[in-house]
């Protein structure tokens, strides 16, 4: 092996000699490759320790290596809300394939309720979601979640863009019924950072503004119902208003939220069929319910007065 060391190939005469012996060069190459990759491998070992870790261990070490990442995670809903989604929950308990695992939608969906829940379904049926479904197997998931490295965004591309670990940055955390301008502007900025990897700035700002308007229109429907109920509660018992109250709850917790998800994930179905016309239906039925109670009351009152009159 020593005789065929790379040093022996320095002069051109030697080179010609060795060239005749293809096998020697092959061995050389293999050896060089082995040494190089061996070195790379040992360097790898230094950065990514082998073995299994629990969350405390992850945090302890990564707080020194990339403190901002851990800090971002700490302020996010993943760290604050129960159950906590910690490092191990998304990355697994070892370093091998940890980033690739966390980048893929399946990891998020496992906790976020599965394919049929609105939050997942609204994305899955969007153009982004469907292209991802068709192409994800061909993509190189070792690439960072930035700079349009992926043809369409998956959950993490937007919500953890460029390895940002505050998943709440782009999500409305306040009550959906409250229009919080400060929060909206922060979300707008965060979204712009992500979406402009592919989309034009004017398209984005028009899309965002339209989305906000659409959501505000949905809120108007909910508020119209709320005001009706505030009046009705003074006149009727909670038992009488049971179905109207149920519809009002559904407006807030299901249909308004659907409009929000439809706007956020760009799903026409959620903006429309599961959203706006559903709210229209809720509103007119609440009106109908209250109206019916009133008509029954009026008839009863009139019948009683008539009874009194005839008995007199």
């Amino acid at each position: 092996m020593n005789s065929s060391s790379p040093d022996g190939v320095k002069s051109s005469a030697d080179y010609v000699k060795v060239q005749r012996n293809g096998a020697v060069i092959f061995v050389c190459t293999v050896l060089a490759w082995y040494l190089f990759s061996g070195a790379a491998f040992s360097a790898d070992k230094k950065t990514f320790p082998e073995g299994k870790f629990n969350n405390d261990q992850c945090v302890q070490c990564h707080e020194k290596i990339n403190a901002s990442l851990v800090a971002e995670w700490r302020v996010s809903a993943h760290a604050k809300d129960e159950p906590v989604a910690n490092c191990v929950a998304c990355h697994g308990d070892s370093h091998s394939g940890a980033a690739v695992k966390a980048r893929q939608d399946e990891t998020c969906i496992a906790c976020h309720g599965g394919q049929k829940t609105p939050v997942v379904h609204s994305y899955a049926n969007s153009k982004h979601g469907l292209i991802l479904k068709l192409e994800k197997k061909k993509w190189d998931w070792t690439q960072p979640l930035a700079q349009a490295n992926y043809r369409t965004p998956g959950c993490a591309y937007c919500h953890m863009h460029a390895a940002g670990h505050n998943v709440s940055a782009m999500v409305r955390n306040q009550d959906l019924l409250q229009e919080n301008k400060q929060e909206i502007n922060a979300i707008k900025d965060a979204r712009r950072q992500v979406c402009q990897d592919c989309h034009a700035p004017r398209y984005l700002s028009r899309l965002f503004d339209n989305g906000e308007k659409m959501l505000e229109i949905a809120r108007m429907k909910v508020r119209e119902a709320r005001n009706l109920l505030l009046q009705a509660r003074k006149q009727y018992t909670s038992e009488e208003l049971k179905s109207a109250e149920k519809r009002y709850q559904e407006m807030q917790s299901v249909h308004l939220k659907n409009v929000y998800l439809g706007v956020a994930h760009q799903s026409p179905d959620y903006q429309w069929w599961y959203g706006q016309p559903a709210l229209d239906g809720d509103l007119l039925r609440i009106k109908g319910d209250i109206n019916e109670l009133e008509r029954i009351k009026n008839v009863n009152v009139m019948q009683k007065t008539q009874c009194v009159q005839t008995s007199k």
């Binding site: 339209n210 308007k213 659409m214 505000e216 229109i217 439809g262 760009q266 026409p268 903006q271 429309w272 959203g275 706006q276």
Partner: peptide
């Protein structure tokens, strides 16, 4: 209907 609401229709 308000046009910001029926934008939902135009997408499809």
């Amino acid at each position: 209907k308000p046009k910001a609401e029926v934008t939902a229709c135009l997408q499809c």
